[in-house]
Write a protein that binds this DNA or RNA. Structure first.
Lengths: 118, 118
DNA sequence: GATCGTTATGTTTGACAAAACATATCACTG
DNA sequence: CAGTGATATGTTTTGTCAAACATAACGATC
């Protein structure tokens, strides 16, 4: 019933931070692997890895650290910076849903419930 | 210096309301014409018109009313519903910038100022 | 009734993003 | 030292969205 919110920040250095990268960070934190996180959100490993690369390059300190080889083949996890970025972004989203409820409700009330067929 | 914010709402009926449609509504209000609004934001008339069609179809009451012919060829303007939708969306954006300042500042401070070349 | 700028659509083309496919590398373990 | 599963990249193909192009209709005014 509630509309979905998508919040996207375009920073001066070119980084675009939105739901996709945030979800990916969260997936890596929970799965311990870039490829597992990618699989979970039905994203190719290559794409997931490119997003990680983008983020790591855009911050002074990388958000994801990864290792290759070993008995499990390797893995990845969030650095402190990564955890912080994720937390701030989620905090922003939550704040908007909370404090933006009136506007969102007003807009929702004006909508037709008939989905526009393409 | 300040990052750009893009807020997008995906409603249950399929409508996606973001900066593009909001700017277009504002342009129509200020220019009195879909094509003039489109020109102003360097968007083809066709695209502008399609966005208007999307919005009009998604709400119980159309947001833009238009007329054809006449000495000036025609024109378009926002209905009360259109004005209301635009106002609510702008209000949401302003609120996020205001109350999200802390999070945005934290994220900005962590960024590298070196733009990642493609 | 010719002119004008706009609304209203359809069709084709092109650009770019995402997917698909294909390897190479790594390091731990048995 | 062979096997394993993940990281790390390059290349090719596909799909989708936007731009470009092309017309028709409209109606007040002169």
């Amino acid at each position: 019933m509630a509309p979905k919110l998508r919040l996207r920040l375009t920073f001066d250095n070119g980084l675009i931070l939105g739901p996709g990268k945030a979800d990916l960070l969260q997936g890596i934190a929970e799965e311990g692997s870039i490829s597992a996180a990618g699989r979970r959100m039905k994203m190719s490993y290559k794409r997931a890895w490119m997003l990680v690369e983008d983020m790591n390059a855009a911050f002074v300190s990388p958000l994801v650290e990864s290792s290759r080889g070993g008995q499990k083949g390797g893995g990845a996890s969030l650095t402190d910076a990564g955890e912080a970025v994720l937390a701030e972004f989620r905090s922003l989203e939550a704040m908007v849903l909370e404090r933006g409820a009136p506007q969102i409700a007003t807009l929702s009330a004006m909508l037709s419930d008939i989905p526009a067929q393409k």
